[in-house]
């Protein structure tokens, strides 16, 4: 029997200190700074900055974008992970690679792609102009860019969960007479719900916080095409530090909510995934019955 691995006490303390120190320096201090700067001139100034019409418009746009991007990616993520986990089809590995694409390329490039596609000089630009449709430098472009940047999150979360689960339970449901729809709602979805929720939380965090791609396609029209992160940048560039930090604190609160939701989900996942000890069996009755 091997002894459980332990390191000398000093090494353990050092490692813990480094980890905590790093966390404090790069996470806690900036977070505290954000709130400190935001509240520098008191609560009324803070509330004023948030209630300012352009800030409210940015908040609305951010929420709208997330409200479209997250459900879209839930649908895409479910479909893609189901296809990848359940079937072996030509192009499966290509699909897996493509899902990771937004992780691999810079968000700015993603934004530029949309400008190249839908912009006035872009491929579809003349056609869009002829039909009086505006995508780039308007809300649709922002939504599209956000969907693109966030689409790996749900799929990436679900693929390993679905692969681990295998086909067995779904096949059992088929044999028991369930329709495809019933199998999805009663068997597949309940089994992946925590993984799905985790993916949604991450996807939502990114959708609300995305800067690069959105910045390229937005056009920075105040009150119209500014999301919260863009609005923070504008305020900061105009030396309205307190207002910038006040709006930034909204994003920070969203991030904190996300983190809490994430821990809850992880905790629930562990709680349901844990194997409980089997019940001790009472003496089997069928054995008694077997004797003449």
């Amino acid at each position: 029997m091997a002894r459980p691995t332990t390191e000398p006490r000093a090494v353990r303390l050092l490692l813990i200190a480094i980890a905590l120190g790093f966390l404090a320096l790069f996470l806690v201090v900036p977070l505290v700074m954000v709130f400190q700067q935001a509240l520098e001139r008191g609560l009324s100034a803070y509330l004023g900055a948030i209630r300012e019409p352009d800030a409210l418009a940015a908040l609305r746009l951010t929420l709208l974008t997330a409200a479209i991007a997250v459900p879209a990616n839930v649908l895409f993520g479910l479909a893609a992970s189901w296809a990848v986990a359940r079937f072996d089809f030509p192009g499966r590995s290509v699909l897996l690679t493509l899902i990771d694409l937004p992780f691999a390329i810079s968000p700015v490039i993603s934004g530029l792609v949309f400008v190249l596609l839908f912009g006035r000089q872009g491929w579809l630009g003349p056609w869009l102009a002829a039909h009086d449709l505006k995508i780039v430098f308007a809300v649709p472009g922002i939504v599209l860019a956000t969907i693109f940047v966030t689409f790996p999150f749900v799929a990436r979360e679900l693929i390993p969960v679905m692969q681990a689960q295998g086909r067995d339970e779904e096949e059992a449901a088929v044999v028991l007479g369930a329709s495809g729809w019933q199998i999805f709602w009663r068997v597949t979805l309940p089994n992946v719900k925590w993984g799905l929720l985790y993916g949604v939380v991450l996807c939502n965090a990114r959708a609300m916080g995305e800067f690069g791609a959105v910045s390229v396609v937005s056009g920075h029209i105040r009150g119209l095409t500014n999301t919260l992160p863009l609005h923070v940048e504008i305020l900061y560039n105009e030396y309205q530090f307190q207002a910038a930090f006040a709006v930034a604190s909204l994003l920070a609160v969203l991030a904190l909510v996300t983190l809490v939701a994430r821990s809850v989900v992880e905790w629930r996942e562990r709680a349901t995934g844990r194997e409980a000890a089997p019940e001790p069996e009472p003496p089997p009755r069928w054995l008694e019955r077997a004797e003449p």
Binding site: D168, V175, T272
Partner: peptide, 19 residues
């Protein structure tokens, strides 16, 4: 279709619905 055949199938690893 499998669901129309009215067969009972017991899987090797039981395949019980875990939730």
């Amino acid at each position: 279709e499998a669901k129309e055949r009215r067969v009972g199938f017991v899987f090797q690893h039981y395949a019980l619905f875990r939730h």
